[in-house]
């Protein structure tokens, strides 16, 4: 029988235990399955740690408290968007800076290499400063994982 070729929209979810609340964020302890590191980018936080547990700062819209077992959703698509914006901007600046510097060498008495280097460095610094100012504003808190469900309520609920 033929397999259905319908593509399901997968969301990366995980379970964890709330161990602390800091400002609006909850710190969640998740179990690290080291053997599945190759399959899941969220497991990367476990690499290099002696213990088999990792800690994540997550958004807490459900007001979970310490001791709650929760389900969290990791905004993987947002990570990709953010990375594409970040490295895309830097790469574009690098190329345009070098190109601009190269063209400038026809106007000023400096070698093409020198003007290209100067143009490139200047463009990367300017784009870095631009990202520094606007990146946070664009993504705000969207890059934090979110608690989507409280699976087992802890003692704090009374």
């Amino acid at each position: 029988m033929k397999k259905k070729r319908r593509k399901k929209k997968r969301k990366m979810r995980d379970k964890g235990l709330v161990i602390a609340i800091k400002n609006n964020l909850a710190q969640v302890e998740v179990q690290c399955l080291i053997e599945s590191c190759g399959r899941c980018s969220a497991r990367s936080l476990c690499t290099g740690q002696d213990k088999s547990k990792g800690h994540l700062d997550v958004q807490n819209p459900l007001k979970a408290c310490v001791g709650d077992e929760v389900e969290i959703e990791i905004p993987e698509a947002k990570y990709n968007q953010a990375l594409i914006l970040l490295f895309g901007t830097l790469l574009t600046a690098l190329l345009f800076g070098m190109g601009g510097g190269y063209l400038l060498s026809f106007l000023i008495p400096l070698s093409a290499s020198a003007t290209s280097i100067l143009g490139l460095i200047l463009a990367v610094i300017i784009s870095g400063a631009f990202l520094f100012r606007h990146f946070k504003r664009k993504f705000h808190d969207q890059l934090y994982p979110v608690i989507t469900d409280i699976l087992n309520k802890g003692d704090c609920h009374g």
């Binding site: 590191c37 980018s41 969220a42 990367s44 936080l45 690499t47 994540l56 700062d57 990791i74 990570y79 953010a82 990375l83 970040l86 870095g128 990202l131 520094f132 990146f135 946070k136 993504f139 808190d141 890059l143 934090y144 994982p145």
Partner: peptide
């Protein structure tokens, strides 16, 4: 360091990346 400064959650997510 740059990513950590502009977006701590992205830095946290990247991990081994």
């Amino acid at each position: 360091m740059f990513i950590r400064k502009i977006s701590p959650p992205l830095y946290q997510a990247l991990g081994i990346y």
